[in-house]
Design a protein around this nucleic acid. Structure first.
Lengths: 252, 252
DNA sequence: ATAAAAATAATCAAATTTGATCAAAAGTAA
DNA sequence: TTACTTTTGATCAAATTTGATTATTTTTAT
C-alpha cells in the first residue's frame, strides 16, 4: 500500500472518529508504526490533521475568513516582518486602502493600536480582523465574493473603491521588476490594485524579496507610482541600487 | 487515555454544564489532577474554554462572524425551526436576498444543498457560511461595517442592494402587527429591509411568535407587501386568523 | 488584616513516544 | 541486467508526557 492509499485511509478513519493512535492505525493498515508516523507528519504539515503524542486529532475547522492557505511556510516570517514595517507607516487619523493579499493582511495585527483609523478594503479577513476593534472603522467593498481570495472583486468592487479617497494605499504584488514594474497574477487582483493606487495620495507596495526581479502575468502599475517598496532584509544591494536609480525608495 | 480523548471528554462535559472543577474532572476520567490542569491550560490557550481557579468555564463563542450574541437561548430553537421552514421555500436556481438578522441566519445551514443559488446579502456571517460552498455564489453589499450587527449598512449598502433584483427576499423583523405592519428596532435595519423588499419579486418575513402583535420603533413595510410570514408553532389561532383576514399567508 | 485552606506552578523521575540513522526492499531508468 | 533513487522498516538516543512531591500563590474564613 502506497502513501496515497494510506493517506486516504487515515483521513477516512479521522473523519469518523475525532482522534486515533499511531499503533492503532499501524495495526489496522498492516503497516509499521514508523511509516505511519511519517505519514502523520506529512498530513500535519498539510494541516489536514493535528499531530499529538501517540496519535493524531482531527483538524479544527478553520475559520472561513482568517484562514489563509499559506503553502510556503518559510515565507510567513518574511511576510510578518514586512507587515510590521508597513504598519509603522500608518499614522492615527489616516484613511488607508488595504488590498486582499496575505502579505498586506499581516499588517492588521500591528494596526490595532493606531486609532482612530479608517480602512477601506475588499478583503474579508481584514474586515474580520477589526470586527471588534474600537476606533477602527472598516469600509468593505461590495460585490461578488471570490472564495479563493476571500475578497470581493469585479466591477462593483472597483466602482466602490473608486468612490473613495484615502491617504495611503497598501497593496501586494506578485512580481516587481525594473523592466515591467508591478505585475499581478490575475486580472482580478490587478484591477483592484490599480483602483486603490489611483485613489490614494501615497502608494506603498508590500513584496517579499523572492518576488523582486520576477515578473508575473499582468502589468498593472509602473514603478514611478510607488512612494515606497516595503520588503525584507534579503533583498540584494544590487536590487536596492537599481530601484533607487528608478526613484523607488526601499524600506526593509 | 491520551490527550485527544481527554480533550474531547472535557469539552463534552463543558458543553452540557457551563462550568466544572478540576478534581471533579480528574475523578470522572480517572486521571491525575495535575494532568487535568495541564489540559485545561492548553485548552484555555486554544480559547476553547476559560480557566478559573479550581476549574474552567465555557468559552464565549469565539469567531467574530459566526457568533451571534443570542441573549435569549430559549428563542434559539424557535429560530432554527423557522430557518428550516424558510429554507424550504428556496428552489435551485433562485436569486435571493438575505438580511442580517439572526433568524434569517439560521436558514444558511439548510441552504447548502440547494444549488445553484445566488445570494445577495449585507450580512458577514451569511457570507462566511457559504465561503466554501460550491454552487452558491454570494454577493456582498459594500459599505461601512456595523460591528454590532456584523453587517454593512448606510447609503452605500442600500445603493448596492437597489442595483440588484432577486426572486425572493427573506428578512427578519423586530415587530409585526395588524395595526402597524412590520416594525424595526433601528433605522439602519429598516432601510436595508425596505430596499430588499422593494427589489424582490416575493417577500418572506421571518419572525418568531413572541414578536407577533408587538410593535417596535420604526415602521418599514405594510403587511400587504408580504407573500408569507414564516413563524413557529406557538403563534395563536386568533393571530393566524387576523393575519389571514389581512391577506397574509402564515407558514408554521 | 491575618491565618488557614485550597489551588496552582515548578521540579523531578518513570514510562512512552518520537525522530534520526542506517539497512533492506521496491521501484526506475539506462 | 545494473546502477540509482525512493520508500519502508528496525534500532536507539533524545524528547515528551505523565504523575508525585513540594513551594508558591490565591482564595476563604476569622
Amino acid at each position: 500500500m502506497g502513501y496515497p492509499e494510506r493517506k486516504k485511509q487515515i483521513l477516512k478513519i479521522l473523519d469518523k472518529r475525532d482522534s486515533m493512535e499511531v499503533q492503532e492505525i499501524a495495526d489496522a493498515l498492516g503497516i509499521s508504526a514508523v511509516t505511519i508516523r511519517r505519514d502523520l507528519q506529512q498530513l500535519a504539515d498539510e494541516e489536514l490533521l493535528i499531530r499529538t503524542h501517540g496519535g493524531a486529532m482531527k483538524a479544527p475547522p478553520r475559520h472561513p475568513f482568517t484562514a489563509y492557505a499559506d503553502k510556503e511556510t518559510q515565507a510567513v516570517n518574511k511576510k510578518k516582518y514586512i507587515g510590521k514595517l508597513a504598519a509603522a507607516l500608518v499614522k492615527p487619523g489616516d484613511t488607508i486602502f488595504l488590498d486582499c493579499g496575505s502579505t498586506v493582511f499581516t499588517m492588521c495585527a500591528h494596526l490595532k493600536d493606531i486609532t482612530p483609523l479608517r480602512i477601506i478594503t475588499n478583503s474579508l479577513p481584514v474586515a474580520a480582523a477589526f470586527m471588534d476593534t474600537p476606533g477602527i472603522q472598516v469600509n468593505l467593498a461590495g460585490g461578488e465574493i471570490d472564495s479563493q481570495r476571500k475578497a470581493m472583486h469585479g466591477s462593483k468592487a472597483i466602482e466602490h473603491i473608486n468612490s473613495y479617497h484615502a491617504d495611503k494605499a497598501f497593496i501586494g504584488t506578485d512580481g516587481l521588476s525594473v523592466k515591467s514594474g508591478l505585475t499581478a497574477f490575475s486580472e482580478k487582483e490587478a484591477s483592484i490594485s490599480t483602483a486603490m493606487a489611483g485613489s490614494a495620495d501615497q502608494l506603498f507596495v508590500l513584496c517579499d524579496s523572492s518576488k523582486i526581479g520576477r515578473d508575473s502575468y499582468q502589468k498593472f502599475a509602473p514603478l514611478s507610482l510607488l512612494n515606497a517598496l516595503v520588503t525584507d532584509k534579503e533583498i540584494t544591494e544590487k536590487q536596492v541600487a537599481e530601484l533607487k536609480e528608478k526613484g523607488v525608495k526601499v524600506v526593509k
